[in-house]
């Protein structure tokens, strides 16, 4: 059943187990088991390493900070969100990212990643970013951080939800084969949104990692890429 809204499968006391939980957990297990199994096969592993290096290059050329420890996080986000978006194309399951709970959880993870990696890079000094350029701006910095996280969650949710909704409505109105172009469009949306989620996590985390080291270098274009200052693109 291809439902637009999350379906409650079981009710465990006060906790409702929706299909989002089942599908996303199954995806995680699939990713972990698949990566362990693929590592055993010599030839697949070599091919995967080429792909990994390509993606690694894509991540490191995007920001100027030393983001090497961040790469697994970003690549996992790309993989998980991309698969979660695309799995909605299969007939029985619908993509778990159409549920705001999952995207909110992913955004909270992104927020936590920002703090953990900034702390690892600079120690407690990373908190200085909140009182830049003046301590009076502390509440605004906190609101900015929270609204950034909210926007991250709502962007993914809104895109996937609208794709599912439009698909369902067109199926209802027009019949069998008409939604195929829309599904092609939703492949593009899904991949681009996964990419953007990872890139935004990367940019936000990198900016908080390097802000404490040198607050003045924030506005300068270093790597030639335009996505630098986190404040201008929230």
């Amino acid at each position: 059943m291809d439902d637009v809204f999350p379906v409650v499968l079981w009710q465990l006391g006060p906790v409702a187990i929706t299909d989002t939980v089942v599908v996303s957990l199954a995806l995680s297990v699939l990713l972990v088991v698949g990566s362990v199994l693929l590592r055993r096969l010599e030839r697949v592993r070599a091919a995967m390493e080429v792909v990994y290096e390509l993606l690694e290059d894509a991540v490191t050329t995007m920001v100027s900070a030393n983001v090497r420890p961040l790469i697994p996080v970003i690549l996992t986000q790309w993989l998980f969100i991309g698969l979660a978006n695309l799995i909605g194309l299969l007939p029985v399951v619908s993509s778990p990212t159409r549920d705001v709970s999952l995207t909110a959880a992913l955004a909270v993870v992104a927020l936590g990643v920002g703090h953990v990696y900034a702390f690892r890079a600079n120690g407690m000094a990373y908190l200085k970013r909140y009182i830049e350029p003046h301590p009076l701006l502390l509440p605004f910095n906190i609101i900015g951080e929270l609204s950034r996280t909210l926007a991250l969650a709502l962007r993914l949710f809104g895109n996937m939800m609208s794709a599912e909704l439009v698909g369902a409505i067109v199926v209802l109105l027009a019949g069998l084969l008409i939604p195929v172009p829309l599904m092609l469009l939703s492949v593009l949306t899904g991949v681009v949104q996964a990419y953007i989620f990872g890139v935004l996590t990367l940019v936000f985390t990198a900016s908080s990692m390097e802000a404490a080291v040198n607050p003045r270098s924030k506005g300068k274009a270093v790597g030639g890429e335009a996505v630098k200052s986190p404040d201008s693109i929230t």
Binding site: R155, Q193, E225, A226, V227, I233
Partner: peptide
């Protein structure tokens, strides 16, 4: 690349 990110914004 920048265009895609900016358009998503």
């Amino acid at each position: 690349r920048t265009l895609f990110v900016g358009m998503a914004m």
